[in-house]
């Protein structure tokens, strides 16, 4: 029995095609283990099943086969009650792509309170949680604002605060930076990494920005509903051919190191982010 916090066994998902009536498989037998406190990026081209996988983990979608265990509990079993599902969603929060379409209330703090209110948390504690969550994402001064007057990055931070207020142990970001400008993206990424570092929250981010993936501790590459690669950014990006075959990019820094290595230059060290790349190359010059 492994100690993994989230574990999937031969997880499959397929949906029925409306026009042909045939089952259209999206995921074919995913075996995955995620430990508490990990920072994981899931990458893959469009239609690789990465979003589906994320939505299965907190039962927005129900698996058609296999099993999912979260915190030692089989959450894909048919005898899950509604309360069990709510308990799961409280533990595994999810932030979506479009910041507009996940804010419910007309005032920022009311929106952050929405999750805890649904969980039936006492009023005084909700107040405390909302204040803490807003402070954590740096949106305290906007507590009384209307969401539609905020920027994309700010809205997304409010959405994150709304999940934090539910006190999750794991947060899934389903392409949460895809619709943001560079500034908004940085705000969200910084918030994400702060939650991982300071609150020890397990982060699973679905992205198609390779430089975002490179910041994670571990990358899972999905291709046509199967796990193609699973490893640290160094492991994944030092061997870029399978990625390119799967229709994915490699971060520029990793690609540079890879080409230098191909030229026969010895480059030990990290390669994921531009900073790592710089260090690795400088180290060679110092020798």
């Amino acid at each position: 029995m492994s100690q993994s916090w989230i574990r999937t066994e031969n997880l499959t998902y397929s949906y029925q095609d409306d026009s042909t009536g045939e089952d259209q498989p999206v995921l074919h037998g995913i075996d995955l283990s995620i430990d508490r406190g990990e920072y994981i990026a899931i990458i893959g081209h469009n239609g690789s099943g990465k979003s589906t996988l994320a939505k299965l983990l907190n039962l927005v979608l129900e698996p058609t086969g296999g099993a999912i265990y979260v915190d030692g509990k089989n959450v894909s079993s048919p005898d899950m009650t509604d309360e069990d599902v709510f308990a799961l969603r409280q533990k595994v929060g999810m932030v979506f792509q479009n910041p507009d379409n996940q804010l419910v209330a007309t005032v920022v703090e009311e929106d952050v309170a929405f999750g805890p209110e649904n969980l039936g948390v006492p009023s005084a504690e909700i107040r405390q949680r909302v204040d803490d969550a807003l402070a954590m994402v740096g949106m305290t001064e906007y507590a009384k604002h209307e969401p539609h007057r905020l920027s994309g990055g700010q809205k997304q931070r409010v959405a994150i605060a709304g999940i934090i207020a539910m006190m999750p142990e794991c947060m899934i970001f389903d392409e949460s930076t895809a619709m943001l400008d560079p500034l908004g993206r940085r705000e969200v990424l910084d918030t994400m990494e702060m939650l991982h570092r300071e609150k020890n929250i397990t982060i699973i981010t679905i992205t198609h920005h390779m430089d975002e993936a490179a910041r994670a501790d571990r990358i899972i590459v999905l291709d046509d509903g199967r796990i193609l690669r699973d490893g640290t950014p160094e492991e994944i990006f030092s061997d870029p051919e399978p990625l390119i075959e799967a229709g994915l990019d490699v971060p520029q820094s990793a690609s540079l190191i890879h080409r230098l290595r191909k030229q026969g230059i010895e480059l030990p060290g990290k390669i994921g982010t531009p900073d790592d790349c710089l260090e690795t190359i400088c180290a060679v010059f110092e020798q």
């Binding site: 907190n58 927005v60 509604d82 709510f86 969603r89 409280q90 929060g93 999810m94 979506f96 479009n98 379409n101 996940q102 419910v104 703090e109 009311e110 309170a113 929405f114 999750g115 805890p116 209110e117 649904n118 969980l119 039936g120 948390v121 006492p122 009023s123 909700i126 107040r127 909302v130 709304g162 999940i163 539910m166």
Partner: peptide, 21 residues
């Protein structure tokens, strides 16, 4: 999308719901 997001935040109608204010 909003319905999905609300479900993810455990929305299940008025029963058992508390209010902040």
């Amino acid at each position: 999308e909003l319905a999905t997001a609300m479900e993810c935040r455990c929305y299940h109608g008025g029963a058992g719901r508390t209010r902040m204010t």
